[in-house]
């Protein structure tokens, strides 16, 4: 079967977009979970993603691990980091003005970035990776790296869905994000649940970091900011606090950005994400999957 050049180009971009989008989705999930449970825009989340890539880099270069063990090591370290971060920097501020915890989040973000720069330098590092296998499907180029990104992302999302829907901890997470006080009265350990949420969200961000390192082949200490912002945009697009929304928003954003680059406006790529965000917020303030809630009078 022969496809026209245009169709091939379109399918090619579609695949590129989905790969990028699945990374956004993984990072967005962490944002959305944390926002859902403590209503905090965790600005440091993008930097946890960056640190995930850095941990993956060291696991491979210094300890000679292969990809999947490195991925798991990075996820575990990021999970621990997420818990520590929450306990030290956010928990004491849970009952004060929300801008205060937002500022702490910014402080953490700056700290992670600059500490990494201090330790490994500001220059991008080449992420070690094996040569890809390319498959040609009806003229569309699919690289094993894209398959890897997509497959890993899907597996992680299924695992997350299982945890949130089927486990006791997942039930507790849903209860706390619905009504923290009521959950507490029902005997749920709110502190542990919030820690657990941070652990899961950070682990996903760490995984996304390693995947991005593997896909683009570079890691740098400042990569977290833009990915973090975009992922947050993805979370808001889909409806913040809603897990499928984060996935949908991530994919949507990945596709939109790839599309804009493909038609020759790559310098506007970063603006497009925000333009879409603003348009959606104006017409559907709660995001694509969100429900509009009114303040009770």
């Amino acid at each position: 079967m022969d496809l026209s050049a245009k169709t091939i180009e379109f399918l090619q971009q579609l695949i590129n977009g989905i790969s990028l989008g699945s990374v956004y989705a993984l990072v967005a999930l962490g944002y959305t979970m944390v926002y859902g449970i403590i209503k905090l825009i965790n600005f440091a989340h993008g930097d946890v993603f960056m640190l995930g890539a850095v941990f993956g880099y060291f696991a491979i270069t210094m300890f000679g691990l292969s990809f999947y063990p490195a991925l798991i090591v990075s996820m575990v370290i990021c999970a621990a980091l997420g818990v520590v971060m929450e306990r030290i920097a956010y928990k004491p501020l849970r009952n004060s003005h929300r801008v205060a915890s937002l500022m702490t989040a910014v402080g953490l973000s700056l700290f992670f970035q600059n500490f990494t720069v201090y330790r490994i330098g500001a220059q991008p590092k080449a992420f070690p990776r094996s040569a890809p296998v390319n498959w040609n499907v009806f003229g569309v180029n699919i690289s094993s790296r894209q398959v890897l990104i997509l497959a890993t992302a899907v597996v992680l999302m299924i695992a997350l869905h299982f945890i949130v829907q089927k486990t006791k901890m997942g039930k507790a997470m849903r209860a706390v994000s619905f009504d923290r006080d009521a959950a507490m009265l029902m005997g749920i350990n709110v502190n542990n649940t919030i820690s657990f949420t941070f652990a899961i969200g950070s682990a996903l961000a760490g995984a996304a970091g390693v995947l991005v390192g593997q896909y683009y082949g570079v890691v740098n200490p400042l990569m977290g900011t833009l990915y973090g912002l975009k992922a947050f945009v993805a979370a808001v697009l889909g409806g913040i606090g809603i897990l499928p929304g984060a996935m949908l928003g991530g994919l949507f954003l990945g596709l939109a950005e790839t599309g804009v680059s493909a038609i020759g406006y790559s310098t506007f790529r970063d603006a497009v994400a925000f333009a879409i965000l603003i348009i959606i917020l104006i017409f559907k303030p709660a995001g694509i999957l969100g429900k509009n809630t009114r303040e009770k009078v």
């Binding site: 825009i41 310098t267 506007f268 925000f274 603003i278 917020l281 303030p285």
Partner: peptide, 28 residues
């Protein structure tokens, strides 16, 4: 005019986006 209908964090993220859009405009 359009964005100030949004509340709290939504307004924050929309204005953040606007700031970035303005910046990207100057880049181009």
């Amino acid at each position: 005019l359009p964005t100030l209908r949004l509340r709290g964090d939504y307004l924050a993220i929309a204005t953040l986006g606007l700031g970035e859009i303005i910046r990207v405009m100057f880049v181009n």
